[in-house]
């Protein structure tokens, strides 16, 4: 297990390093100099040069890369070109919207997918199964931002139960949760459809195993065998997908945040891209990639801890 952990850890570090390099290069080749963008087209060349020096843009690229990576290791993400505030602070503020949103969506999608998947698997080939599978086909085909618009049309405009967008802040937690509800539903639906399919097929695989026949032969009812033996074994692939979905939801919220005018990480990326606030763009993207890579790493380790066979396959 130690060897496996070390090997995975090395590949984690290498992935993060390569990712940071790719992000830095992509953002750096972007046309448009932040300093001249901030000062407008009438700025004097000397002023631009002075601002470039102030922002630290005049040093060679590799030094800026090293400074950026080194800073992130110590929790210092640099200072936003546009707002002159620490990037770490800006990200932290936005995370208070994006993270609860992703968690709400993940909870919702899990709460829908578990019962639906179990129900469909237990009634394989029957009307209930066909209905659930049909619904999931529809679920994966619906673009979440369009579904979000329909939710707004129905629940905000016609029924007036929710506000159509915006975020009141966490001073009033109930209001805040309420404003995240429609976005969370919109995000959760396609994910729930995928998770339901995984849950169903994973359960079906297990139901065909010999030990399930043994369980039935021992005298357990179908229901008992399902709950006591099948479910536990079927959870492994389901957990991977849940792990993947969390990072996906964090990043995938970008478009939904646009629909509901939520001040999350997605809005921050768009804003900083249009303002050429390169350091913010780099840091937010790096943070999202970091989240994906680390979640995958944790899922891998958790597996290997549960199932020793997986340690062989590195």
């Amino acid at each position: 297990m130690l060897r496996y952990t070390l090997k995975r850890l090395t590949s984690l570090v290498v992935s993060l390093l390569v990712a940071s390099l790719v992000i830095f290069l992509v953002v750096e080749v972007a046309p448009g100099d932040p300093a001249s963008y901030m000062l407008g087209i009438n700025a004097q060349p000397e002023t631009v040069a002075a601002l470039r020096a102030e922002l630290g843009l005049d040093v060679p690229k590799y030094q800026r890369y090293l400074a950026w990576v080194g800073g992130m290791l110590t929790g210092d993400f640099g200072t936003s070109y546009t707002y002159r505030t620490p990037v770490a602070q800006m990200i932290a503020d936005r995370l208070w919207v994006s993270l609860p949103l992703a968690l709400m969506a993940l909870t919702l999608s899990t709460c829908i997918a578990f019962p639906a998947g179990i129900y469909a698997a237990a009634r394989r080939g029957q009307a209930g199964d066909v209905a659930v599978m049909g619904a999931t086909q529809l679920g994966v085909a619906v673009p979440n931002f369009w579904f979000a618009m329909l939710l707004v049309l129905l629940f905000a405009i016609n029924l007036g139960w929710f506000s159509a967008g915006g975020f009141p802040g966490w001073d009033n937690p109930l209001q805040a949760l309420k404003s995240l509800t429609l976005p969370a539903i919109a995000l959760a639906l396609p994910q729930a459809a995928i998770l339901t399919r995984v849950m169903r097929s994973s359960l079906l695989d297990i139901l065909g195993e010999d030990f399930m026949r043994t369980a039935r032969a021992k005298g357990l009812s179908r229901r008992q065998a399902l709950w006591r033996h099948a479910l536990r074994n079927a959870l492994i692939p389901v957990l991977t997908i849940i792990g993947l979905q969390f990072s996906f939801l964090l990043a995938g919220a970008i478009i939904i945040e646009q629909v509901f005018f939520l001040p999350g990480l997605g809005r921050l990326i768009f804003q900083s891209i249009t303002q050429r606030d390169l350091i913010v763009v780099e840091s937010v993207v790096m943070l999202l990639v970091f989240a994906v890579i680390v979640v995958n790493f944790i899922v891998d380790l958790a597996y290997a801890a549960v199932d020793p066979r997986l340690r062989q396959r590195v």
Binding site: S11, V14, S15, V18, A19, I23, V26, V27, V29, A30, P31, S247, F248, L250, A251, G252, I254, I255, I269, F270, I273, T274, V281, V285, L288, V289, V292, I293, N296
Partner: peptide
Amino acid sequence: RGNDLIFAFPSLVIAILITAV
């Protein structure tokens, strides 16, 4: 390894980054 790396990037974010840049 290259494949694993591309998979680690949230595709939507990178697509937005590329089209924005």
